[in-house]
């Protein structure tokens, strides 16, 4: 008995999940629903990484995207009041224009990409962590340090942006 049919089936299910989630994020009016479906897309994407044999990347994907970024975005949704009327969420004039533009660029690229990369399957098997660690800490040591500087800049910038407002608000409260 062989289980060769499993991989294409799993791939098909995951790709439907990824694309349906992505389309839902674009189409849905309710932001919380969009955020949750974005998390769903990320989870399906993690499944694809597992299918490709990149288990470490899949774990990082869930850790960063589902665990951190989605929560951050949900926080952002909660701190802003959004309009619930459906038409308020879309540009009115640009919509057909954008659709035509994206379709014109996307369709050829998708077709070319699909047809040009046939051939041997990716190598599953997992165990990509040692290779990853070696690359990051030897060849990519400098980008690695730059990454920390980038994170520091993001941290400082975001704190400045949110803190300034807190002080202003506190000052306003004191004046009142």
């Amino acid at each position: 008995m062989t289980f060769d049919f499993v991989e294409p089936v799993v791939f098909a299910v995951l790709s439907i999940g990824v694309i349906a989630g992505g389309v839902a994020v674009v189409m849905l009016n309710r932001i919380t629903a969009a955020a949750l479906l974005m998390a769903f897309t990320f989870l399906s994407m993690a499944g694809m990484f597992v299918l490709l044999g990149a288990e470490t990347i899949a774990a990082f994907q869930v850790l960063i995207y589902v665990g951190a970024i989605t929560v951050l975005i949900l926080y952002g949704v909660m701190f802003t009041k959004f309009s619930t009327s459906p038409r308020a969420l879309f540009f009115q004039k640009q919509t057909p224009l954008a659709a035509v533009f994206v379709a014109a660029v996307a369709v050829p690229i998708v077709i070319v990409a699909t047809l040009s990369f046939t051939g041997a399957p990716p190598r599953p098997g997992g165990g990509d962590l040692p290779a990853l660690a070696t690359s990051v800490f030897t060849d990519f040591a400098f980008p690695f340090e730059i990454a920390s500087v980038l994170l520091l800049a993001a941290m400082v910038g975001a704190i400045v942006l949110t803190k300034r407002d807190d002080q202003e608000e506190a000052a306003a409260r004191r004046r009142r």
Partner: peptide
């Protein structure tokens, strides 16, 4: 016996937060 067992556990721990935020919301 996952190669990345500890990482897997951390990952699952971070998923719980999502459920709680959604419940509260």
């Amino acid at each position: 016996n996952l190669n990345i067992g500890l990482l897997y556990l951390t990952t699952l721990g971070s998923m719980t937060v999502l459920g709680i935020v959604i419940a509260g919301w």
